[in-house]
Design a protein around this nucleic acid. Structure first.
Length: 597
RNA sequence: GCCCUCAUAGCUCAGACGGUAGAGCACGUUCUUGGUAAGAACGGGGUCAUGGGUUCAAUUCCCAUUGAGGGCUCCA
């Protein structure tokens, strides 16, 4: 990002340039299909702009070249942007043959929402911008003249389908994405970042590093973990389990299916059914594949009378759940149909709640930091009146409890109005990766619905039954998504503690194989993951192979090393650390992984 | 699910007016025994995603299905 820090994007020159570029694109498209184009909206977005059109035919990449060429001509003519405030009647006249614009104008007239559907306080005035032959309904702002757009900073990117107003019941439009920058350099940097992101794509790295795959016969959205990916995941899980144990969690296991009665009681069949798979018939009883683990944990809680002295109870499970996702939304490891949550449920007394939320928030951030993530943004999701179980007081008090805890934690947060799940408000934590991209993993959810519907209780100091409160949380979220994020964050070059192979021993000639095997054996017996590259290739090829596999250390051994029981160490950064005694290298490995043992 | 695009060897991709296919990498064998990012030769490997249709003939054209990619929407 190159915007100035304290300036809002909406106020920046870049925003005007992109907004204006969108208009110029619309003009070019309208000229391409005279009288046949219905224009929708075309705003600037984070790194560019788009415009949605209804067109007589599908656009091709060649069309984009033509449109881009025409845009450069329009820019070259240096047309002025004329701004005018007009009445709704006049606007309807101007856009008489543009049904989408008419709908927008009617929306503006009614007030309350702006042209992009965002709620506004006062009824906005209606304005138009005109450049050359093209007039668009628009509140601006724009650059003063088309010539202010740098033609070398402009590029059209791709075409995609998009529903009018994002509503799948409305017409499907064609959206052209483009980007515009102040300089050719900025554009180049942007394209470089895109390329870098493509290189880090976890689907590509998953194949190249032999971490995981999917398979047509297995089914879409279902992941097969290969030994290398499985190792990374195991290390991550082992580390987390140990931390959970230290933090007072107990481990439980639950089955993958449960009878329909369970899901009726829990409310899932009422609130979550569209994400659940069709039931299985077992001896005339209906069973459902689990979309969540909570009802099982609740039953474990219920298996005994609980005393106030027992609380809080924290049940953790790496539980694999299955949820129906529409085929078009599946994406690598990030959006799948079967995934394993690092799930846990806390049962506590109401008075323990604030402290419990504080603890789990801190625990979450500690774990994420351990994996190398430093920047976070939290979101507090509040009640959705359409989709909410339980009574309003509970929602209010629990939302307040979450907000108070966020305030105490000091991490920045936003409110997501109406985004809560059916059983309670929640905090979602998103993290920023090495490329500054935002990912949602962690979720901490208040749940007062299940204690109620399963009639949970504990015996208080007063000898009477009381209702416990429940927190439902996943820290890494799903292991699948987390691994996807981790792969992209590190571009596949996992830190030593997570690397599936931490070092590879490379014998220079066959006669050094014995020494290589001995080195590997000693490191393995100290608990390190070490391979010997015994293939018939030359040393150079083996080093190249290890580099491409992003193995942290390459240990070259030849005559000199065999004689002195040493290894020559090359790091995957390319740095040659030279020869060192075996013990010295082992100490390096030990210190690399020390914080995680 | 919807719109658009795509599917040829394990991977990345060529290919032909419709006449059953090729490269590089990977894999195997042999030669080479090397000092920090690819040594060489030879070899095995494809029902051209699946099912229909058109045709003398389909991997190629058409339809459907499955899967993948870019979006919309949604979320862990």
């Amino acid at each position: 990002m190159v915007e100035k820090k304290d300036e809002r994007y909406e106020d920046s020159d870049l925003y005007r340039i992109r907004h204006s570029a969108a208009h110029i694109m619309a003009q070019a498209v309208m000229e391409m299909f005279p009288g046949e184009v219905k224009i929708a909206i075309g705003p600037p977005i984070a790194e560019g702009f788009y415009y949605d059109f209804e067109l007589p035919r599908s656009l091709t990449p060649e069309d984009l070249e033509v449109i881009e060429k025409r845009m450069l001509e329009i820019i070259g003519k240096d047309f002025e942007y004329a701004f005018e405030v007009i009445s709704a009647e006049k606007a309807k006249e101007i856009f008489a043959d543009q049904p989408y614009k008419i709908e927008l104008i009617e929306g503006l007239e009614a007030g309350g929402v702006d042209e992009y559907g965002t709620p506004t306080d006062e009824a906005p005035e209606i304005s138009i911008y005109t450049q050359d032959t093209f007039t668009d309904l628009c509140r601006g702002p724009h650059v003063a003249r088309t010539g202010e757009i740098n033609p070398d900073g402009l590029k059209l990117l791709n075409v995609a389908g998009a529903y009018w107003r994002g509503d799948e019941n409305r017409p499907m439009l064609q959206r052209i994405y483009g980007t515009a920058w102040q300089s050719a350099d900025d554009l180049e940097q942007f394209l470089w970042r895109r390329e870098e992101a493509a290189k880090r794509d976890h689907r590509r790295l998953g194949r190249e590093l032999d971490l995981f795959s999917t398979n047509e016969d297995v089914g879409p959205g279902l992941i097969l973990w290969h030994p290398k990916g499985g190792m990374v995941r195991k290390i991550a899980e082992d580390y987390c389990r140990a931390e959970h144990e230290k933090a007072g969690y107990e481990f439980v296991y639950s089955p993958h299916i449960g009878k329909s009665k369970l899901w009726e009681t829990s409310g899932h069949l009422q609130w979550f059914k569209e994400k659940m798979y069709a039931p299985l018939d077992i001896e005339g009883q209906e069973y459902y594949l689990k979309p969540m683990n909570c009802p099982f944990h609740v039953q474990i809680y219920k298996s005994n009378k609980r005393s106030y002295r027992d609380l809080p109870l924290r049940y953790a499970e790496w539980g694999t759940v299955y949820r129906y996702e529409r085929s078009g939304v599946l994406h690598g490891l990030l959006r799948v149909r079967g995934f394993t949550q690092d799930d846990a449920h806390h049962f506590c007394r109401p008075d323990q709640m604030p402290e419990e939320i504080d603890k789990v928030l801190k625990f979450t951030l500690d774990i994420l930091r351990a994996f190398g993530f430093e920047k976070f943004q939290a979101y507090l999701s509040t009640r959705n009146p359409e989709k909410a179980a339980g009574d309003l007081d509970d929602w209010d008090s629990s939302t307040k409890a979450l907000r108070d805890s966020l305030d105490r934690s000091g991490i920045p947060y936003q409110i997501d109005e109406g985004e809560a799940v059916f059983y309670g408000p929640k905090i979602d934590i998103k993290l920023l990766d090495a490329l500054g991209r935002e990912w949602q993993l962690s979720t901490i959810q208040f749940d007062f619905n299940l204690p109620e519907s399963f009639d949970l209780s504990y015996i208080g100091e007063d000898g009477k039954e009381h209702r416990p409160v429940m927190i439902h949380r996943a820290l890494l979220g799903s292991m699948e998504r987390f691994m996807g994020v981790l792969i992209e964050h590190y571009a596949g070059a996992f830190p030593v503690w997570l690397a599936p192979v931490q070092a590879v021993v490379i014998p220079i000639a066959d006669r050094h194989l014995g020494h290589a095997e001995r080195i590997a054996k000693r490191l393995k017996s100290s608990g390190f993951r070490v391979d010997v590259d015994a293939r018939g290739d030359r040393m150079n090829a083996k080093i190249r192979h290890a580099q491409l596999q992003k193995i942290p250390y390459m240990l070259v051994v030849g005559d000199r090393e065999a004689k002195t029981d040493s290894v020559s160490v090359r790091q995957r950064s390319g740095e040659d650390m030279g020869a060192m005694p075996f013990e010295e290298f082992e100490a390096i490995l030990v210190s690399d992984v020390a914080p995680y043992r």
